[in-house]
């Protein structure tokens, strides 16, 4: 191509590659293999909200001002979820997966990419309702320390509680959600007893390894931000982390059929994207 003819779009793509390389080399956060389309969108938002003209300017600031990295991570990682998001998923966990989990004397559950904790609290409450909490250790991991701190606090705006409560009921909840939180100053604080069996930890599906043997892994709407190669890495990590016949739950619109590990899993509840590790 004629070097003088390169358009703004192509220049921007080069800048984005360089920015992600800078983020990795300087701070070891690796977004280089994230799915491009939404990443680009979020980087544009970050650039515009920081009032910077180009990604090159953002790169310059990122390299020299460490405070920029947590701001950038908030654009790149923080997702707002709900308690019992997609109630049918939790109903399937309760009705189809829990009967299998009951047969184990002790259980390990991994909420991978836990963000601000909504998925985690949903599982702990469900396990308490099903009488499994006391034999379970929950691992809640994320790459964003601010999100992990928020998850460990378990405080959500009160205006979200109505949705949480409806979801909980549709999921087949056996108790009242209000048993698990107290309210003050427009917020609902989830009870600290729900965190007694939880280990919060910084862990990256992109760069870190297997750390324990799990009976159930829930990782919903996290891998949608990865490209195909990175999704394969994460699914491989899940495969390596699961006990024999362990379960993997994905988001409603995620599928293992495009994965190189498709053959390593069977569809356990097809419509809810709950898979079971299959052994040769």
């Amino acid at each position: 191509m004629d070097a003088e003819q390169m358009d703004g779009e192509q220049i921007e793509d080069i800048e984005i590659r360089l920015l992600l390389e800078a983020l990795f080399r300087r701070y070891h956060y690796d977004f280089r293999n994230y799915a491009q389309a939404s990443l680009k969108r979020r980087l544009r938002q970050a650039r515009d909200q920081m009032g910077l003209p180009t990604f090159s300017a953002l790169q310059d600031r990122l390299l020299r001002d460490p405070a920029t990295v947590s701001r950038l991570l908030d654009f790149l990682t923080v997702q707002v979820s709900e308690l019992f998001r997609d109630p049918a998923y939790f109903r399937a966990i309760r009705e189809k997966v829990v009967p299998h989990l009951r047969t184990y004397p002790s259980l390990k559950v991994w909420i991978a990419g836990c963000s601000s904790g909504e998925e985690l609290y949903s599982f702990v409450i469900l396990f308490r309702e099903e009488g499994l909490e006391e034999r379970t250790l929950f691992y809640a991991t994320d790459i964003n320390q601010d999100a992990l701190d928020a998850a460990a606090r378990g405080i959500y705006p009160l205006d979200r509680i109505r949705t949480f409560t409806e979801n909980h009921q549709f999921s087949g909840g056996k108790s009242s959600l209000s048993d698990y939180y107290s309210t003050a100053y427009g917020h609902a604080a989830f009870d600290k007893s729900l965190r007694e069996r939880v280990v919060f930890s910084d862990h990256s599906l992109v760069t870190d390894a297997v750390f324990a043997e799990m009976h159930l892994i829930s990782c919903r709407n996290v891998m949608i931000y990865f490209d195909r190669g990175l999704q394969d890495r994460a699914v491989g990590l899940f495969r390596g982390s699961l006990a024999r016949k362990g379960f993997l739950g994905l988001g409603a619109k995620e599928s293992l059929r495009f994965s190189q590990y498709a053959g390593s899993f069977g569809e356990f509840v097809r419509e809810e994207k709950i898979y079971q590790r299959r052994d040769p």
């Binding site: 799915a35 389309a37 939404s38 979820s81 949608i224």
Partner: peptide
């Protein structure tokens, strides 16, 4: 596009979904 997801197109002509705000 599925309800409650953004639907995007990647340059390799695959769909990617997102639950950004």
């Amino acid at each position: 596009a599925p309800p409650d997801y953004h639907m995007l197109v990647e340059t390799d002509r695959t769909v990617s979904l997102s639950v950004e705000g």
